[in-house]
Design a binder for these strands. Structure first.
Ligand code: SF4
Ligand code: SF4
Lengths: 164, 164
DNA sequence: TCCATAAGGATATCTATTATCCGTAAATGC
DNA sequence: GCATTTACGGATAATAGATATCCTTATGGA
């Protein structure tokens, strides 16, 4: 039971987008190069973010992605669910209905087993919902020594799109 | 990101084993029939439980499984981890090392992103660890009307192994 | 007009889950 | 002893899901 790699990718991407100057954008290509992941596949993940209303894509040269709302209004849960889906991590396949000696019984609603598993799932989501993207101030970049941090900034600046 | 079906299966199996009379056992076949799942594959899951020290198997006719310790000393987390593994649900693939403009930097330890994801994972496990198998008193069976509950009891009794 | 880009459909590749099969060894009853 | 029943483990097949690539379309900017 492991999350997709896309989750790690988009978290890094969002962290980068959040650090962009006002009005700036980054293209899929730039994001893919920066993180060393396949561009086409990352594109799918970014489209998921876009459909979830977390980022906005724009076309044409100097196009690319930017956050669709302030980083303080985006939570980790938003990002994770955009890529991973909102489905619970415990799926009940209703095996109780297969029971040979209980045919004819039509149980209504989930049982205690499912309730407990879903409660744990809810705790996980609650934890993620409590962290805003804007709180991710100590990102990959910020944890770097100053010189490397600047190198990254100029690398990004050289590829900036949008109306900066 | 979904858990295996085996998790649902073994939770039901443990619930059944916990309700067994002292010294009683149930074979893989009985457990598979009761839940309507493939016997051979369920067997793998039960072997996982056995290796985790949660249940004890015994050979020969009237053999089968029983809990290896009191239901009050087994948590949901024990059961889930036995089948699903102890690995975290967020795997860091260290994509930060792919970064073209940060070569030569050797980051030590996980970043803030990973820490947050792992914290949520920990919350999920904490929730599961807080529920003992013995607290699962309102199980599938107990939520049934009395007549069906008795039918299930006799069905199980007819297949009981061990020294009852 | 031309190019760079997001978006989405189709499809291939790879990996993990699900499932089945068979052989071995131990316990039970005869 | 002997046949039967069972857990256990290895090998393998079938299926679903994640990963990755390719191609087409529409749009915005120069
Ligand atoms: S008894 Fe609970 S876990 Fe089992 S199939 Fe029904 S709802 Fe799902
Ligand atoms: S920066 Fe964090 S999430 Fe990204 S690769 Fe490193 S440890 Fe993993």
């Amino acid at each position: 039971m492991q999350m997709r790699n896309q989750v790690e990718w988009v978290l890094h991407c969002c962290s980068l987008l959040a650090a962009l100057p006002e009005g700036g954008r980054l293209s899929t290509k730039a994001l893919a190069d920066f993180h060393g992941v396949p561009k086409e596949y990352l594109s799918k993940a970014l489209q998921s973010l876009s459909q979830a209303g977390l980022v906005e894509g724009s076309l044409g040269p100097s196009g690319g992605y930017r956050l669709a709302k302030p980083a303080s209004e985006i939570t980790f849960l938003d990002i994770v669910e955009a890529v991973e889906g909102k489905g619970r991590n415990f799926a009940c396949t209703e095996i109780r209905r297969n029971n040979p000696c209980l045919q004819g019984h039509d149980p209504k609603g989930p049982c205690q087993v499912a309730r407990i598993m879903w409660q744990a799932d809810a705790a996980w989501r609650r934890e993620l919902a409590a962290v805003k993207l804007s709180e991710l101030t100590v990102t990959l970049e910020r944890e770097l020594p100053a010189d490397l941090q600047e190198r990254a900034t100029t690398w990004v600046a050289a590829r900036l799109g949008g109306s900066v």
